[in-house]
Amino acid sequence: MQTPSALLNRLLARGKFRHIQVLLFLAELGSVQRTAQAIGMTQSSVTQTLAYLEALLDIRLFDRHARGVRPTAACADLLPVARQLLLGLADGAAALAARQNQGEGYVRLIASASAVHGLLLDALPQFSERHPMIQVRLDEAEGEDQLLAIARGEVDLAICREPAVVPEGWMFEPLRADRFVVVCRPDHPLARTRAPSMKALASHRWLLLPASLSARRRFDELAERFPAMPATYPIVTRSAPMLWQLLQQQDLLALLPLNLVRPLLDAGRLVHLRGGDAHPLAPIGALRPASGLGAAAARLYEALRTRAAATH
């Protein structure tokens, strides 16, 4: 029976990054031939690599069958770790490349959709104009997905709403106020009213977000004040492109975060109805390490603070 420490020492001494790549591609593609084609190896090399890895770990990772290979339970246990290792290597390669190409650093930024639309769409291009040698990789994620990325060490800076529990060693600073607003397209029947009554709001059809989101819960609270339940559109989504398409093409109302719709309001593609606005929302802010923030990330953080303060 092998101990975890003995197995770890064996992997450190004899394991290779190529083994991880072969493992992941075999699990995804289910075929030695397709794996060989995908990563530029011969089929025999893939087969030999798999045999070496199984011998190294002293466990079967794939079941062979007529059409290819299928991950075993042991392989399934290993895959999440392998994926994180390969992602970490990719991040490291990107950071080194940014530095080697006479750059000043590399920032791994994660942000919610509201943060992207309400702050980063304007602030990030301006930052890049002033600091062209700093490379910023922006990923969009919400809530728990952001916290998981922070826990895995994949993030230098997060722009989001304050989480219920701030990760240990991190701190949150509010940057931009937010609230829920009712929006519609400029030629919607209620657009000229701008402050419609509850009866008027209830008489038109609404575009809803999924029940798990705070915007949907706020809508349900608003609807309790209506004289009757309004008609709703049959598509329920959180996809921003779909929301924008539907709101601009059809006579629909929606209750959404102000920062999420800010670019479309500024461009005149949507209008804000003043009715039903008693719905506060937590501000968007920066979630960052309390200490040890890298120089490039610190520059970005200060630029976002300055931009947010200037537009209050």
Rank of each mutant, 00 (worst) to 15 (best):
M1L: 11
T3Y: 04
A6S: 13
A6M: 05
L7N: 08
N9K: 14
L12N: 14
R14D: 10
R18A: 10
H19P: 02
A27Q: 06
V32C: 05
Q33F: 07
T35P: 06
A36Y: 08
A36F: 02
I39L: 09
I39T: 05
T42W: 00
S44V: 14
E54W: 14
E54D: 03
E54T: 06
L61F: 00
G68E: 04
A76D: 10
P80E: 03
P80Q: 07
V81P: 00
Q84T: 04
L86Q: 12
L87R: 15
A90N: 06
D91E: 15
A97F: 11
A97E: 14
R99F: 11
R99C: 12
Q102A: 15
V116N: 03
G118Q: 11
L119S: 01
L120N: 00
D122N: 12
Q126M: 15
S128D: 07
S128E: 15
P132S: 10
M133N: 13
I134F: 05
E140K: 11
E140F: 04
A141H: 00
E144N: 09
E144T: 11
Q146D: 10
V155E: 06
D156P: 03
D156R: 08
A158I: 02
P167Y: 11
P167N: 13
G169M: 08
F172K: 03
F172W: 12
E173H: 05
L175K: 03
R176Y: 02
F180K: 00
V182I: 11
V183S: 00
R185T: 08
P186L: 13
D187R: 15
L190F: 03
R192D: 04
A200L: 13
A200Y: 02
S203G: 08
S203T: 08
R205D: 05
W206S: 00
L209F: 07
A211Q: 15
A211Y: 07
L213Q: 05
D220C: 00
A223V: 13
A223D: 10
A223S: 15
A223C: 12
E224V: 02
P227Q: 06
P230Q: 09
A231Y: 06
Y233N: 02
S239M: 14
P241F: 08
L243S: 03
Q249N: 10
Q250M: 11
D251P: 10
A254K: 01
L255Q: 01
N259Y: 06
L265R: 01
V271T: 13
H272L: 10
R274W: 04
P280H: 09
I284Y: 05
L287V: 04
L287T: 00
R288K: 05
L293T: 04
L293H: 04
G294N: 11
A297L: 09
R299D: 08
L300G: 02
Y301I: 01
R305V: 14
A309K: 13
A310H: 13
